[in-house]
Design a protein around this nucleic acid. Structure first.
Lengths: 148, 148
DNA sequence: GCATAATCACATTGAGTTGATAGGAAGGAA
DNA sequence: TTCCTTCCTATCAACTCAATGTGATTATGC
């Protein structure tokens, strides 16, 4: 399940990506236009900044902007920052692997194999979908996934 | 995220699928061999029975068995019973669609499009993976997904 | 320099979910 | 009858999620 937090983060990042030549956008504006609780959004933006995806400016006429070009930021990065690994189960994760305590033989585990496939598919789609490609409306993620 | 409940359900169903000619298997045996809390497992088996995936027999020499051939029961069915829709977000779900209250234009929503792709990929894999194919060890789910 | 406006940083809250356990009721076999 | 096993409901503690509150800090404009 994608949390509200991750969904709001994606919305905010897409809003920032639509700003022309990296102009600042304020939390209050994003909150209003995207229908996101303002204070909750601040929390999210803070986290995105700490992870280096956006930078911020304080004081009057402050706000937020992408820290990198929109075609170098993927849905996968954003979702992982907010919700952690994409894999449905830790033993199938690359970025957050953890062994199942109740698993006898991990190598032969059919559940792990299935979940690994799901993880790979999700990663293929979300890591192939950039803010840029999402803004221009296309289904670039799917194409990238199919050719990788 | 796949819940413990769903993971335990998959393990239990795989154990039942490995029984020869539908012989009964008791909750206590499954619990022991699969490292699952016994009472929690009972809860899970109850739910699987109510959904018609297994049937049960009470009393001495009672137990559980699949209600249908192993090649007609998919991971997708089991996961949906335990955890609900596969889609990461309700607005991208086929089986449990719900509109996002904060979404302006669902048709154009890039997040929804991405999550729909993830859902379709996950469904392709999990609905193509049967207890039968999982038992025989192969990655039949992946093959089914690719050809569907 | 002062008021204003914005981000930064925690702390807290309330609701809901998850994972698990308890205790018996009901049904079947020996 | 007497075990044995499933059936069913209730309960629990711990945790997570979504959101709010309260200030502190920093920059701008007058």
């Amino acid at each position: 399940m994608l949390s509200q937090k991750a969904k709001y983060a994606l919305k905010a990042m897409l809003a920032l990506a639509e700003q022309k030549n990296g102009e600042l956008l304020q939390a209050a504006d994003i909150a209003e236009h995207q229908n996101v609780p303002r204070k909750f959004l601040e929390l999210i933006l803070l986290e995105l900044r700490k992870q280096g995806l956006i930078h911020s400016h304080r004081g009057k006429h402050g706000g937020y902007a992408l820290a990198k070009p929109a075609d170098t930021i993927t849905f996968g990065q954003i979702v992982r920052i907010m919700d952690g690994p994409l894999a449905p189960i830790p033993c199938a994760s690359l970025t957050g692997y953890r062994r199942c305590v109740d698993c006898q033989d991990e190598k032969a585990c059919a559940i792990r194999k299935a979940m690994r496939e799901v993880r790979d598919a999700a990663a293929g789609i979300l890591d192939g979908m950039t803010l840029e490609s999402a803004c221009s409306g296309g289904s670039a993620g799917a194409r990238a996934a199919l050719t990788s």
